[in-house]
Write a protein that binds this DNA or RNA. Structure first.
Lengths: 119, 119
DNA sequence: TCTTTCCCATAGAACGTCTACTGGTGTATT
DNA sequence: AATACACCAGTAGACGTTCTATGGGAAAGA
């Protein structure tokens, strides 16, 4: 039996933005980043490892973050990511984009039975 | 010269929902659907033909809409799409999902400088 | 006739996410 | 000492949506 359909597909291309935002608080490693996002979203967002690490690597490729090896709070080897100046700019770009998207979609989704319930 | 990066990628997987919502107003053909979404979003959303028609076809495959050939307002042959009962249900599912997504991402994106201060 | 506008459609590439793994290493348990 | 477990990083391959870039037919107007 084959599972042909994805279960979640819930991030909708916003993972990069979420990661950058999380790093505003300071450097963090992958595990922590995922947990922070999940907790702050009240467990609505689920960050899969297979999504997270590729995201971190491409953020670094693009220069939005830099990384270094360190030791985690649990005394384990971990790669920490730090927001760069370019990443900070990118975050505002993506946040603005997201805001305008939400607004635009909201405009389309609002019920247009206004005619019936007009003030 | 090759354009290696996509220009927009602005729909973020919400096109199906937008199309279904548009059809709540009544049957419509592809061109109209695209224009309605673009206008209602104040031209923020851009619906490419290469995104729209595949979307309409998959909505039909899944039973969310049904289609028939007719004649457009401009006297041209056009395929009209109508929302099915299943499509109406699907719309509420996707709309709820979208709402919870917006809320969850909002929770992550809000500034948390408060936490940094209380040290 | 020629051009424009309307309308449908598809192929192929790009991209982000998911599933499903592998592998290493501290810490606690037995 | 051996085992189990939680923590941490990573990759391959599939999948689905969107994009770019086409093609073509048919009505309307110049």
């Amino acid at each position: 039996m084959v599972k042909s359909k994805k279960e979640q597909e819930l991030l909708l291309g916003t993972l990069d933005m979420l990661v950058l935002q999380t790093l505003v608080l300071g450097p963090a490693h992958g595990h922590t980043i995922a947990h922070v996002i999940e907790q702050r979203s009240d467990e609505v967002l689920q960050i899969e490892q297979g999504s997270l690490y590729p995201a971190l690597h491409r953020l670094e490729d693009r220069g939005w973050v830099s990384s270094y090896w360190g030791v985690s709070e649990n005394n384990r080897k971990a790669r920490f990511y730090r927001l760069t100046a370019a990443g900070r700019k990118q975050l505002t770009v993506e946040a603005n984009r997201w805001q305008s998207m939400v607004k635009a979609i909201g405009s389309v989704m609002q019920n247009v039975t206004r005619t019936a319930e007009q003030k």
